[in-house]
Each structure stands twice: as structure tokens, then as C-alpha cells.
Design a protein around this nucleic acid. Structure first.
Length: 246
DNA sequence: AAGGTACGCAACCGCATAAAT
DNA sequence: CATTTATGCGGTTGCGTACCT
């Protein structure tokens, strides 16, 4: 048969939630090689994950510059407007909010905005309250957002591979929590989860007892954090600009 | 305080398209 | 050019947690 060789052996791939150890392995690899060649990731890192799963984890959670948590009214407005224009093309909508992932936007739409819009539509006469605010902002945002946030390829922030402070700190938080009791995680619902990792990633978890990252990784993290500070500064400037526009 | 329910998020699944052989 | 897989995307599900009764 011609064609490409298969990316991974589907019989041995691990599923379920990612562990901090896996995250670190993935981040370290991408830091070194850059994102893109996903099929080489499981092969070269030893991760028992499908390349697809690695890509998803990276783009939705570990990618540099990702902003998590509260959506601002401005962001809401852009999402609502673009959803109206583009439909459920979340990747396209996400290009207007470079620091949000399509998955995040999709989740937010399904859990919050859909409900909000429904409420608004069932009470068309209600011209007061937060919904009105949202939709007003939406209309404003609609006309200006392509200028303010032109559809940017992820390249606008990605090339630095700087991971967000939140993501990294969360990573280490998870690491600290799980490291001392890794042995107890076997029954973690995800059959064969933490337990097998101990063996698989022994060479990666160089010093599990000390709660410190391996030296090389800590250097990488340090440089990421420094870069993140620069990104945050830039974002601050953007917020000022945004507020001026609204 | 305990049990039940709703909510939010991470991850998986399946499909479409692009790319490699 | 045909075949096969990688990649990207949208829909959906399952789990953990917060909130309510």
C-alpha cells in the first residue's frame, strides 16, 4: 500500500486527562522542536498519546499566550457578533480573539452566550440590563473589531513559545500535588493512569522528591515567564486601547 | 451535614480537507 | 493519479466542582 505511514499504534494510546508529567514532557518537546510535526511527538517523547491528542492538548491548554477564565464584555461582543456572521466556525471566530482557543470560545458560547441570547430574545422589550449592554457592545465591536483584532494567525504570539504564567504555574501546581503521591494515583479512574507513568517517564521526572523541575526545564520556564511579562505588558496597552474604543 | 442537581471545562469522536507516498 | 494518513475543526460527552434544597 502506498500512502503515509501510520502516526501511532492505536492499541497502546492512553486516553483521559493529561497528567502534569505528560504536560511537561509535551511542553519540553515543543519548546525544543516547535509545534507542527505532531506525528513525531509521541514517537520522540515516549508519550503514550495519539498525535491528535498531543495537538489538542497543546492548542487548547499549553500553548503560549492563552488567556483563560473570565471573558470580558468586549470579548463577548466579538464572539456574539462573529457567531452571527460566521456561524459555528469557532476557529474563525477565535482568530478575532488570538488569546482564546476555539474550544474555549465554543464552550463559552454553549454554556453562557447561547443562554444569554435566548433570554434576550424571549424578552425583546427588555431594553435595560446587562443584555442590552452586551448587544450594544456587540454592535460597536462588530464594526471595529476587524480593525482592532484583524484575523490573526496564531503566529502573532506563538513563535516565542512563551507559555503563560497561569499555564506554567498550574503545571507546577499539579506537579507538586501529584508528585509526592504518584503511587496512589493508580485508581484514578483513568485505568492505568498515574501508576504506569512512573515507569514510563522515569528519565523525565528527574527529581520527583525535591519538587523542583529538572535544571534544563527550569531554565526554559524562566525564559518563558520573562517573555510572558512582555506579552502581558502588550496586552495592557491593548486593553487601554479597547476601553478607549468602547 | 448530606444528597441531588446544574454548571463548566477538558478531552474524545467523527468528518472534511490537505499532504505525502 | 490513487491511496492512505495527518491535520484541523466542530459536535458531543464525561467528570469534577459549585450550588441548592
Amino acid at each position: 500500500m502506498g500512502g503515509r505511514p501510520p502516526c501511532c499504534d492505536n492499541t497502546t494510546v492512553k486516553k483521559g486527562p493529561w497528567t502534569p508529567e505528560e504536560d511537561i514532557v509535551l511542553v519540553s518537546y515543543i519548546q525544543e522542536h516547535g509545534p507542527g510535526n505532531w506525528r513525531s511527538v509521541p514517537a520522540n517523547t515516549g508519550l503514550m498519546r495519539c498525535s491528535k491528542s498531543c495537538r489538542l492538548r497543546w492548542t487548547n491548554y499549553l500553548r503560549p499566550g492563552i488567556k483563560r477564565g473570565h471573558f470580558t464584555p468586549q470579548e463577548e461582543a466579538i464572539i456574539i457578533r462573529q457567531q452571527g456572521l460566521l456561524g459555528n466556525r469557532w476557529a474563525a471566530i477565535a482568530s478575532y480573539l488570538p488569546r482564546r482557543t476555539d474550544n474555549d470560545i465554543k464552550n463559552y458560547w454553549n454554556t453562557h452566550l447561547k443562554k444569554k441570547l435566548k433570554q434576550f430574545q424571549t424578552a425583546p422589550g427588555s431594553s435595560s440590563g446587562s443584555h442590552r449592554h452586551t448587544l450594544t457592545a456587540c454592535n460597536n465591536g462588530a464594526t471595529m473589531c476587524p480593525d482592532l483584532h484583524p484575523p490573526l494567525p496564531t503566529s502573532c504570539c506563538a513563535p516565542t513559545y512563551a507559555s503563560s504564567t497561569e499555564n506554567i504555574s498550574r503545571l507546577w501546581e499539579g506537579w507538586m500535588k501529584s508528585a509526592p503521591k504518584l503511587g496512589n494515583r493508580a485508581g484514578d479512574g483513568d485505568g492505568g493512569g498515574g501508576g504506569e507513568l512512573q515507569g514510563s517517564y522515569g528519565e523525565v521526572r528527574q527529581d520527583p522528591e525535591s519538587n523542583h523541575p529538572p535544571p534544563q526545564q527550569s531554565l526554559l520556564l524562566e525564559s518563558w515567564l520573562l517573555e510572558e511579562a512582555a506579552v502581558a505588558e502588550a496586552e495592557g496597552l491593548m486593553d487601554v486601547y479597547t476601553h478607549a474604543m468602547f
